[in-house]
């Protein structure tokens, strides 16, 4: 089948050969795969505009048990399914391998970087802070290596005060590193941490339905999953539309 012009342009952009052309290419369609990385959840990709934008810092935030990890793993599964390499900077070493395998993540394509966590931190706040700083350094190294399809910084269970104590220039520096690349950066946390100008924030919360006010589904003797509402927040004023979506998580056999 001959290549369509739009496909050829997409391939040239992907390999950064478009600068060799004598005529300028049209601007990227936001729905183009080169511009966005689909999350793997069709109901979520639509309000996201095709997926999370590449070359930007985006966030998935929400309280505990709001589906952050499920979305994170689904996005990683979609990325590895496309043949991309994924790096996960697990600041507090809470990644569950079985959950990732159940979500469809190709584990061979996942670089898992585990933060140092002590068995009983007690009242020592510095332990979490050191773990976060080390995780930021590892995150920086991964971005410097470049060409990862998806890089995730998972600080979902880090105390908010530890996140706030990080210098604000940290996020500016990371944004600059990822700009213009094909890497999609995802920050997972309890609160918004940082988001680049063209990135977006996905706020999750358990979705209340009828019988269960908190969107948590229990069957007869089995926990069945969560029902989550996702709200998309964009930074750009002209696109400040708070689109929402809902999805359900289902417990697989291993969970």
């Amino acid at each position: 089948m001959p290549l369509a012009r739009v496909d050829l342009e997409s391939l040239l952009r992907t390999h950064r050969l478009d600068r060799t052309l004598t005529t300028a290419l049209p601007p990227l369609d936001p729905r183009d795969e080169a511009a966005c990385a689909p999350s793997g959840v069709p109901s979520l990709d639509a309000p996201l505009g095709g997926g999370f934008p590449r070359g930007q810092l985006s966030e998935v935030v929400g309280p505990r048990s709001s589906g952050r990890t499920s979305i994170m793993l689904q996005t990683a599964a979609a990325a590895t399914g496309r043949g991309e390499l994924v790096a996960l900077v697990d600041a507090l070493d809470m990644f569950d391998v079985e959950s990732a395998a159940a979500a469809g993540v190709d584990l061979d394509r996942l670089l898992w970087i585990r933060g140092h966590v002590v068995s009983n931190p007690g009242l020592c706040r510095d332990t979490n802070q050191r773990a976060l700083e080390q995780a930021i350094r590892a995150f920086t190294l991964v971005l410097q290596a470049g060409n990862f399809g998806l890089v995730i910084f998972d600080a979902a269970e880090a105390p908010a005060e530890a996140i706030r104590r990080l210098p604000f220039t940290t996020w500016l520096r990371l944004q600059r590193m990822v700009e213009g690349s094909q890497t999609m950066c995802l920050l997972v946390g309890g609160e918004p941490m940082a988001r680049s100008s063209a990135g977006l924030t996905l706020r999750l919360r358990p979705h209340g339905i009828r019988d269960w006010g908190l969107g948590i589904r229990f069957g007869q003797s089995l926990f069945e999953g969560l029902t989550v509402e996702a709200r998309v927040v964009r930074a750009r004023v002209r696109e400040r539309e708070e689109a929402t979506a809902a999805f359900s998580t289902v417990v697989s056999d291993c969970a």
Partner: peptide, 11 residues
């Protein structure tokens, strides 16, 4: 809704 696999965060 399309199903998303529920995930755990291990302590």
């Amino acid at each position: 809704q399309p199903l998303v696999s529920s995930a755990l965060r291990r302590c």
